[in-house]
Write a protein that binds this DNA or RNA. Structure first.
Length: 466
RNA sequence: GUGGGUAUAGCUCAGCUGGUAGAGCGCCGCCUUGUGGUGGCGGAUGUCGCGGGUUCGAGUCCCGUUACUCACCCCA
């Protein structure tokens, strides 16, 4: 009853760790905004029937109901009508339909919110997790160049984060579909599902399954495997696919699209992001119709994808109008929590204060508060020591919190006050004027400490974003 | 949903074949009459996850239960 224990799958961060998450979210937001994407936040609940459309997802949905919900006519327990969203795409689709009259199309937005899923927790998989989505949605039509655009945005955004190198692995559903069709395979979706087992089963077993389960000939199965094992960092996959000798219009279209995506993303990817065409990427969800992508993080491949997305020609539809879209999502929790746990990322301090103003005696609190106020007027976060303890203890108070500076206000004669500020990391203590002294930019705010070598060092920023 | 592991101090863990609970780190105090980090000395802390059983006696053995955790499935 009294002892509290953690709830599996619902991670909570300590203050210093939270600064990491906030900085990452702020960085992502800034990049998305640099590309002209507006932010929205959708409600966290949706009607159950809208969420459960897929059918099988039911058990993953957390339902919401009031404790004192009315029981109509003394009947059985009230039926749940609301559920917590399990991704940001379904709510976004609803949002587009609901507000279509007030939106400008193509509509570009980003969304960074938690989602809930009732699955068994594991490293990188939580019951509550934060996701960052960027999408572009059109009305009736959405030109292909937006595929290129939205993928480039995420490449740019992840390239700016202080995380291990990530790799974008692209494919295209038209390419797969066209290839299979040209090969004479009817059940493309089933074949894709089998091919998807390639990382768990050896190639010959997958081939056997294609023959048995999908009903392909051994030759067809062989071709499928040849296609699926093509993985290159440039557009040379085009010739390699052509060399397999399958002819189909849709295949040609897919090849052209994939080549364009790979080329454009490579152009914006710096050293910190890899871009590849990987022709066995399929993505389970069957609403994808063109570009598909999965993102992996170096050294953390066991987390599976840390991001993914693609093109869907019918994200939403109200019967008269359909809204095609293309988007990618990045798993903020999935990526950050393991990195924080491994010590790859940490916060520089658990408090925002850059300065602790020491307190001489309780009667002098006003004097210390005045110094603090002066610093705050110049946007320097600070706090006054809680008690007039010995200076050693006050310094230790700051040290525990990794507050870099301690400010001393000392009487230096009848009407003289002497102000001094001490950098407790170096021990250096100098006279300072509370009206003008400013710490170096790097000490102003808590930031991310990373063991990842970063080319440019602008990782610390703190912006409100919730 | 399926299978394995674990549950002892704030943290990491030890505790052999049952005999009234320990280490390291951390924390607090003093050495240090106001300027920390190193060093020395001293100190505090546990319903041994919960319930039941066996026993003179259970942290230890048995059963149950809950939670956490890892793997599978699946996904961000």
């Amino acid at each position: 009853m009294s002892k509290i224990s953690p709830l599996s799958g619902f991670p909570e961060l300590l203050p210093a760790q939270r600064t990491v998450e906030r900085d990452v979210i702020a960085s992502l937001s800034r990049t998305f905004e640099l590309h002209g994407f507006a932010n929205i936040e959708t409600r966290v609940v949706e009607p159950i029937d809208r969420l459960a459309k897929g059918g099988e997802v039911d058990k993953e949905i957390y339902v919401l109901q009031r404790l004192q919900a009315e029981r109509h006519g003394g009947g059985p327990a009230p039926t749940a009508e609301l559920g917590l969203h399990f991704d940001l795409t379904v709510p976004f689709a609803r949002y587009v339909l609901e507000h279509a009259g007030h939106l400008e199309f193509p509509f570009r937005r980003f969304q960074i919110q938690p989602a809930w899923r009732g699955e068994r927790p594991q490293e990188g998989r939580y019951r509550q997790f934060t996701q960052a989505d960027v999408d572009i949605v059109g009305r009736d039509e959405l030109p292909f160049h937006h595929d290129v655009e939205v993928m480039s945005v995420m490449v740019d955004a992840l390239g700016r984060l202080p995380i291990p190198r990530v790799s974008f692995q692209f494919n295209n559903r038209k390419l797969i579909q066209g290839f299979y069709r040209g090969l004479g395979i009817d059940d493309v979706t089933d074949a894709i599902r089998v091919i998807d087992k390639l990382d768990k089963l050896p190639a010959d077993e997958v081939a056997a399954m294609l023959v048995e389960r999908v009903g392909t000939t051994p030759e067809q199965a062989q071709r499928c495997l040849e296609l699926a094992t093509i993985r290159v960092e440039d557009t040379s996959f085009v010739e390699r696919v052509r060399a397999l000798g399958v002819a189909d219009d849709l295949l040609d279209e897919g090849l052209a699209e994939l080549a364009e995506v790979v080329e454009a993303c490579s152009a914006v990817a710096g050293d910190r992001v890899g871009v590849e065409a990987n022709l066995r990427i399929a993505r389970g969800l069957d609403y994808y119709t063109g570009t598909v992508v999965e993102v992996f993080m170096e050294g953390y491949e066991h987390l599976k994808s840390v991001g993914g997305g693609g093109r869907y020609d019918a994200l939403a539809s109200d019967g008269r109008t359909t809204y095609p879209g293309v988007g990618v999502s990045f798993g903020v929790s999935r990526t950050l929590i393991p990195l924080i746990a491994d010590g790859v990322l940490s916060g520089s301090r658990p408090v925002p204060s850059a300065v602790l103003v020491a307190l001489n005696a309780e009667e002098d609190r006003a004097a210390s508060a005045a110094v603090a106020q002066g610093l705050r007027e110049r946007d320097i976060a600070c706090e006054v020591a809680p008690t007039p303890a010995k200076f050693g203890k006050q310094i230790r108070f700051a040290d525990r919190r990794a507050i870099p500076y301690v400010w001393f206000v000392q009487a230096d004669g009848p009407d003289e006050v002497r102000h001094q500020v001490k950098d407790i990391r170096t021990g250096e203590q100098v006279d300072a004027d509370p009206a003008t002294w400013t710490p170096p930019e790097a000490d102003l705010r808590p930031g991310i400490v990373t063991t990842i070598p970063m080319p440019s060092t602008h990782t610390s920023t703190t912006e409100e974003n919730q």
